Amino acid sequence: MPADTTAPDLRQGSATPWRERMPLPPSEAMSEAQRAAAQALIDGPRKGVYGPFLPLLRSPELLDRVARMGEYLRFGSVLPARVREFATCIAARHAGNQFEWHMHAPLAQQAGVEAAVLDALRQGARPAGLAGDDALVLDFSGELLHQHGCSEPTYARAVDRWGEQGVVELTALLGYFVLVSWVMNVAHTPAQSAAGAALPPFPL
């Protein structure tokens, strides 16, 4: 097996020695269903096959269903971009997934989340001084990811702010990004280069 040249801070998944377990298969080795699933990704808003869709290509029908769910949660949800991107960063940090962190920390910052907030999250600390949507997203996400539910006060605040549809979609978004993070962690799908990203990787 050839030596892996992936930079250590772009690796994810805990097994050693580290290697990417499910890279993109050669086109000639793909089934018709795999080629169709890959082409659908290329033709859609993602414009390519990367990240969780590399391992998911091993199950083309599952890939299609996961991709369609992700497209709605990312591009069609009633939640504002700032809420979606900050929640995605929280899920990525919780699941120890550098790929989603590299992808979404810059997007969260572009959507208005302060760099200091993201850097505290990156280091595993609770960001201080949060208010408004950012505080509510962190509270809701933290309760769901760590306690597998949501307290009455936090639920009431979330429904008052985003409605029942928004609460359902925020819950699903957190679950979706934990799901794809786990898939990549098991497959050892490396993060893309952090060049140009707003924040460095988080410590593993």
Rank of each mutant, 00 (worst) to 15 (best):
P2Y: 08
P2K: 15
P8D: 15
D9Q: 07
R11P: 05
R11D: 02
Q12H: 13
Q12G: 12
G13C: 07
A15G: 08
W18K: 02
W18F: 05
W18I: 05
R21S: 08
M22Y: 06
P23Y: 00
L24V: 00
L24S: 02
P25D: 00
P25K: 00
P25C: 03
M30R: 15
S31I: 14
A33S: 14
Q34I: 10
R35Y: 06
A37E: 10
A38P: 04
A38N: 03
A40L: 09
I42T: 13
I42W: 03
I42L: 10
R46A: 09
R46Q: 04
K47V: 00
K47C: 07
G48I: 00
G48A: 06
V49S: 07
V49T: 05
P52L: 11
F53M: 12
L56E: 13
L56G: 09
L57D: 04
S59A: 15
S59Y: 13
P60I: 09
L63N: 07
A67M: 09
A67L: 10
R68N: 15
E71I: 11
V78S: 12
V78Q: 05
V78I: 11
L79T: 03
P80Y: 01
R82W: 08
T88Y: 06
C89P: 10
A91L: 06
A92Y: 01
A92L: 05
R93G: 11
R93H: 14
A95Y: 03
N97F: 02
Q98M: 14
W101A: 02
W101I: 07
H102E: 12
M103K: 00
M103N: 05
M103Q: 10
H104D: 12
P106G: 08
A108S: 11
Q109R: 13
Q110D: 10
A116V: 12
A116S: 14
A116D: 15
D119G: 02
L121H: 05
L121W: 02
L121F: 07
Q123W: 04
Q123Y: 01
A125R: 15
R126M: 05
P127Q: 13
P127D: 12
A128C: 01
G129L: 02
A131F: 04
D133R: 03
A135Y: 04
L136C: 02
L136T: 06
D139G: 09
D139I: 03
D139P: 00
F140E: 00
F140N: 03
S141I: 08
H146R: 10
H148C: 10
P153Y: 14
T154P: 03
A156L: 11
R157F: 01
A158L: 12
D160M: 12
D160C: 11
D160H: 15
D160G: 15
G163M: 07
E164N: 09
G166W: 04
V168W: 04
V168T: 11
V168I: 11
E169G: 09
L170H: 03
L170T: 02
T171C: 08
A172F: 06
L173Q: 12
G175W: 00
G175Y: 01
F177D: 00
V178W: 08
L179H: 15
V180F: 06
V180C: 07
V180W: 06
V180E: 04
V183I: 14
M184V: 12
V186W: 05
A187L: 08
A187F: 06
H188G: 04
P190V: 09
P190T: 11
A191M: 08
Q192R: 00
S193M: 01
S193G: 13
S193D: 14
G196I: 03
G196T: 03
A198Q: 01
L199S: 05
P200I: 00
P201E: 07
P201N: 09
